[in-house]
Amino acid sequence: MYDYSSRPSRLPLPVDERMASADIDLGQRKSIYRSLQELRQFEKRAHDLFLQNLVKGTTHLSLGMEAVAAGFGAAMRPDDYTFATYRGHAHALARGMEMGPAMAELLGRSNGVLGGKGGSMHLTDVSRGMMGSYAIIGAHLCIANGAAWSAQMRGSGQVTVCFFGDGTTNIGAFHEALNMAKVWQLPVVFVCENNLYMEYTPIDLITAVPHPAADRAASYGLESVIVDGNDPDAVYLAAGKAIGRAREGGGPALIEATTYRTGGHSRADPAKYRPLEEVEAWAQRDPIPMYHARLLGLGVAEGELSSIERDVAADVDAATEFAKAGEEPTGEALLTEVYADGSSRWRN
């Protein structure tokens, strides 16, 4: 049987050490570090709870990819809009979704952020600008355009950021959305999290160009931007630039963030289709130890970082208890919120 793991490894580029001296406020960097810890520890717990059969269905984790969500989250204004995919836990948390209701949603409890009706793949918190996690590839790029169009019409200055995977660049909606965004000069930033695999298949095997998003940018009059998606500072800077330009009326941007998922596509996937050397090399580029070392290098005390880690661990514990304490939703919830009157009534 042919096995993709025998293909040549695609190794990460080394860390760009110049990023350590980038002009980023130290307080902002500590905040990004906290965010990285939140995303990592929350998802590791979600994984544990899945193994305990408390999280049902499936989960699509961003372990290893947290720098993209954390970097963008730090660069966004509170009223900006996020659109994410089924791999959306990190993006929801990076916009400030409370961990308790998020974890409870994964457990299918009535105190979940969606009352248990959405689940892992649809985390949404409109109050935080988290406009949804969409589980069918491509659609949400078009929907993100609509939110950006609305902001443009209302003159609100809000920017929409839309995250998606490398696999999305091969579906028609990607191309429809980029074309319309450019023609209408919409304030939207499209972010391709290129983790090198479309589910179980290496993206380069099934894509006509080496960089699935960046190499398509020119087709839509956009700059080709590739950023190290495992370096939170690099992401933060690229995010700030694209968001700032969109806010000033400069139109859309497309950013390809190169990254790697530590685990498989979903809970069903042990990801054995990847060369061992590749997996190990990317493990060395895990964004969290790297960022930890960078902050130490910038003079942050070890004790301060470990204090952040402990605080987050306590938050995750509390979120887990909150979720476990939640009731399973009852039949009352089953028939609500199909229509805006709160009901599912289709006849008189």
Partner: peptide, 8 residues
Amino acid sequence: RYMTDGQV
């Protein structure tokens, strides 16, 4: 609307 329990 249903998936978000009425948020949108």
